[in-house]
Amino acid sequence: MSYAHPEYLVDTEWVAAHLQDANVRIVESDEDPLLYAIGHIPGAVHVDWFSVLQHPLRRDFLTKEKFEELVSALGIANDTTVVFYGDKSNWFAAYALWLFQYYGHQNVKIMNGGRTKWEQEKRPFVKETPSYAKTAYRAKEADKSIRAFRDDVFKQLDAKKPLVDVRSPKEYSGELTHMANYPQEGSTRGGHIPTAVSIPWSQAVNEADATFKSPEELRALYEGKNIKADGEVIAYCRIGERSSVTWFVLKYLLGYPNVKNYDGSWTEWGNLVDAPIEK
């Protein structure tokens, strides 16, 4: 058994062999915004999810026009193969990939294992920031088929279709919002969306080298919790970053045709007046 769409995954060896390939752009996207400056894969460009991928005012992603500017400045053309990698088992690499797909970039891949594996293999990190000739990138209209808004979640609930909560067990149970020292805690209620099953995102990756688990293991993990390919699945976490990993796994590694990431996630649902919650 192999992954459903293995072309969405490359290994570190492939990346090392394509560092000079003009048709390939390596993009680092991290949870920690300083990691790229400390050292990155030679020739890789940086996309900071927090300062760059978000809308400056509204709670939303950057606009299509801003996305075109960003991607053009990174020297990415519409037919460039974009390979994402990052820290923390590719959390934010998956998030950036999801957003690139949201604006219609088709040729995207994740470097399996991310920074962790590249570092374990003692491959080079450099501090020099590369610059590439600007392109005239044209994005497509946002692809809402991969993004769930709160109304989609209500419809999902009404239709009794599956929801996957990918947060840690304590966030799922609602215990975590009661922890001390969260002066600006993002949600006023703890718990999870009713009927959502708990499958923490990290169960999809091998702790040792941050690579994805085997197709057999992944299938057993999700099908074992009754998350199956025949139907719509919505994944969520706190702000939609960890659930991007789950979205990637379900859509490209297992080949589920209809998977959405609910980026509003718990920081929206746990603050939403009149929304049902289970503990």
Binding site: P33, F50, S51, N181, P183, Q184, E185
Partner: peptide, 17 residues
């Protein structure tokens, strides 16, 4: 907050306490 995300800052106050 113009440089790092709110989660990082939350961690900051955690380190202090």
């Amino acid at each position: 907050q113009e440089a790092v995300s709110q989660q990082r800052i939350t961690g900051f106050t955690g380190v202090l306490s």
